[in-house]
């Protein structure tokens, strides 16, 4: 089961983030995601695996044990929803909570992010970029470095390959989730090309998937 062709190609990508990015491009995120054909199966997650996920979430998200307990109570068992291209969605009571592409980072759904905005570091895109993000485009540097955008200051710089939440200029709530392709300082310096790859956003097919 685990010996799919993509497994063999992993050897080419020694760098974890690089591999993740290639996968991202390959599967096109949730832009054309059809629950009826793209979901392969649902299985309850083993409790030992759940423990592993729980500790990974606690270390990778800015979240404390109690809040995680609120989102995902210890006694409740999550369901692993397997989708095409090694994409996994984890759902609690049929409501998608977070997902993972291949073995990349766990990313919260936008709905979960709205409820708990602090779990990911934020970047802000300017107003002109919102409509592109909502059409599924990756975010380019100028959209983040311009007056309407915002990047964390130099002393809180994010490295490439970090999961971030997209805020938008003049908006209260996050609009999407992405993975940085450049470090934030690098974005300022280069100011060209893709800065953050968008993974999921308001209005995509994962957003539409409220119940599994």
């Amino acid at each position: 089961m685990r010996t799919s062709p993509s497994h063999a190609s992993q050897a080419f990508f020694t760098d974890r983030t690089q591999r993740w990015q290639v996968l991202l491009q390959h599967r096109g995120m949730f832009k054309k995601f059809q629950p009826s054909t793209d979901i392969v199966g649902q299985t309850p997650v083993k409790s030992s695996v759940q423990r592993g996920i729980r500790s990974t979430l606690l270390s990778s998200w800015k979240i404390d044990t109690e809040t995680l307990e609120e989102i995902w109570p210890k006694k409740e068992s999550i369901v692993h929803v397997k989708c095409r291209d090694h994409l996994s969605i984890y759902a609690l009571h049929g409501e998608p909570l977070f997902f993972q592409g291949h073995d990349g980072p766990y990313l919260p759904t936008v709905r979960l992010l709205h409820k708990y905005p602090f779990i990911l570091p934020h970047v802000r895109i300017d107003r002109g970029a919102i409509r592109f993000l909502l059409a599924g485009a990756h975010m380019m540097c100028p959209g983040l470095t311009s007056a309407g955008g915002w990047l964390p200051p130099a002393d809180a710089a994010l490295p490439a390959g970090t999961a971030v939440a997209f805020d938008a200029e003049g908006k209260e709530f996050a609009v999407g989730v992405g993975i940085t392709k450049l470090g934030t300082e690098e974005m300022r310096a280069v100011n060209k090309g893709i800065a953050v790859e968008s993974v999921t956003y308001v209005g995509d097919d994962l957003w539409a998937l409220q119940k599994l």
Partner: peptide
């Protein structure tokens, strides 16, 4: 205080 309540969306 310990568990941050969710934002009511």
């Amino acid at each position: 205080k310990r568990a941050t309540p969710p934002v009511q969306m």
